[in-house]
Write a protein that binds this DNA or RNA. Sequence first.
DNA 1: CTTGATGCTCTAGCGACTAGAGGGATTAGC
DNA 2: GCTAATCCCTCTAGTCGCTAGAGCATCAAG
Lengths: 138, 138
Amino acid sequence: MNFPIGELSKRTGVKVPTIRFYEQIGLLPEPPRTESNQRRYGKAEADRLNFIRHSRALGFEVEDIRALLAMTSEPQGSCHQADSIARSHLSEIDRRIASLQALKAELSRMIDECGHGRICDCRIIEALADHSHCCTEH
Amino acid sequence: MNFPIGELSKRTGVKVPTIRFYEQIGLLPEPPRTESNQRRYGKAEADRLNFIRHSRALGFEVEDIRALLAMTSEPQGSCHQADSIARSHLSEIDRRIASLQALKAELSRMIDECGHGRICDCRIIEALADHSHCCTEH
DNA sequence: CTTGATGCTCTAGCGACTAGAGGGATTAGC
DNA sequence: GCTAATCCCTCTAGTCGCTAGAGCATCAAG
């Protein structure tokens, strides 16, 4: 219940330098220190760090996480803002998926057309050189 | 046929500072300069820059582009390497799409379950706090 | 008491740009 | 010919979310 940073790292799967980095940018509060200046953590910090880790894994940006964490400290407030952060993140993900799928289509087409011959005949190189050959927007 | 950097920028859609940046990292050769030290470009540079721009738009990294550009200067060589760069990029895109789709599923589920009430009842906050509620890997 | 792991702070690097400061050059209109 | 707006130059620093490394102090086990 009063463990050092390496133990917090093991419990959460977040690397030690990353924990210190999160403290530096204010995602984690400054923990108490031992007499010899070492950080000591408890369960609350581990929970908070797990929240951060999971949010990052789901692709939320640090500023979003900051807002989400702020909400957890006002448990009687409305969850409207959390909903809105999550929704806008979801639509961002949708946009990224759509854009990657367009890239994938274009790339696949280029690769399929490649005759595996010489560079001067290569459709990949040619397609890269001339955007007007493309079917989708990018 | 001998135009300044702003004109090159207009022709290619690449911003002026980005063009200078590409020169700095060696993607574009150092162009000749006027007496007053201004860069002057021709069609060859515009073609090369369009190639770079299109490759970036398709998500290729600078190092890949460097390799692809090197091939264009050996037009009799095999296009095997171009094919291999494109294929590995495609599989990277596939991985990213898959990962984003997993995130999307998880996020959608969280949002659907949110009752729009108080934070202390919010499924979004709860799900972020506890990874074990998740269905997919991330 | 030694040794190896762990802890600390601080700085710099990644990728691919972007922004801004502070100056010189060019060009269009009067 | 003059002026003002626009363009161009170099250089430095910032973006995001870490990660790596230097150089040193401390801790736990044998």
